[in-house]
């Protein structure tokens, strides 16, 4: 049997993604007198296209609509205006072809690690045909030994690996990552960044990564989309033309980091660092 990791070139699962002139507003929260009548404009006329197999990061301060954009692409919310497509198909509802991983792994606590990973196959009613893939994905994320464990026994990094395997087992055309490594400690996070890159290379899935860690965005992505808040807009899209594996302390890396911080008006803090 050919393992997925050993034959990356055989698989190109990603699909292109287009977001055109998308806006999204939220009604004011009830009972909040100060904001009553004012709706929050989470996204305003956002346009973005991502090529098949590309890894793009969304970076910006909180409230800039990164997570909202991800939920729209996942199909969990409908846009107020504008259109979204995966390949040639418009996005109307959630689907297994657009996997989503949150900061909180959101593993089903009543299922073992193995059953969590199987969940997508069960949901689509294809467990019988694809049962052998479960082992493959458990191996892919290095969790064979924890097949029977319940989620509350797992560390944060392990739980997030299960969440990744659970999303990947459906072979999504687009994998949406909403700060998936945000809750991990610095060392685990750097290890997991390599892990995600390995999975991305193995599967050539299109990935959209929301993060507020600029180093993470530079280390991982082909392009970085900088968003600004209220209303959420795309400020700039930066291509990262550095060879992988990237050196976090190389002059090019640091220069890029300085540029992005300047764009986000945090340039002063780099001088201190």
């Amino acid at each position: 049997m050919v393992t997925l990791a050993a034959a990356p070139d055989l698989i190109a699962e990603g699909s292109s993604l287009r977001v055109r002139e998308v806006s999204k507003s939220f009604a004011p929260a009830d009972g909040n007198v100060a904001e009553r009548g004012e709706e929050t404009r989470a996204l305003e006329r956002v346009t973005l296209s991502v090529a098949a197999g590309e890894l793009v990061s969304l970076v910006g301060p909180s409230g800039c609509g990164k997570s909202t954009l991800l939920r729209l692409i996942a199909g969990l919310d409908a846009p107020g205006a504008g259109e979204l497509w995966v390949g040639p198909e418009p996005i109307t509802a959630p689907s297994a072809e657009r996997g989503l991983v949150f900061q909180d792994p959101n593993l089903f606590p009543w299922l073992t690690v193995r059953r969590n990973i199987e969940a997508g196959l069960v949901a689509r009613g294809v467990l019988r045909e694809k049962r052998n893939e479960v082992d493959e994905f458990m191996r892919l994320v290095g969790l064979e030994k924890f097949a029977g464990a319940f989620p509350h026994h797992l560390s944060g990094g392990m739980a997030q690996r299960v969440a990744l395997a659970r999303a990947l087992i459906n072979h999504p055309k687009v994998l949406l990552l909403d700060e998936p490594l945000g809750a991990l400690d610095a060392f685990t996070r750097m290890k997991m960044q390599d892990e995600v890159l390995r999975l991305w290379r193995a599967r050539r899935t299109t990935m959209l990564l929301v993060t507020h860690d600029i180093d993470e965005a530079i280390y991982m992505s082909d392009r970085i989309v900088i968003l600004t808040p209220s209303p959420g807009r795309i400020e700039r899209i930066i291509a990262v033309d550095l060879e992988r594996p990237r050196q976090r302390s190389s002059p090019e890396f640091l220069r890029l980091r300085g540029d992005i911080l300047e764009l986000l008006h945090f340039a002063g803090s780099t001088a201190a660092a």
Partner: peptide, 26 residues
């Protein structure tokens, strides 16, 4: 938890899965 239901939807879950395999166990 709404996020359990969101995750299940992005895994391809229909209403039956959401009720019997997410909401009831939860």
């Amino acid at each position: 938890r709404a996020s359990f239901l969101d995750v299940a939807r992005t895994l391809g879950a229909g209403r039956g899965y959401l009720i019997f395999r997410v909401a009831i166990p939860a």
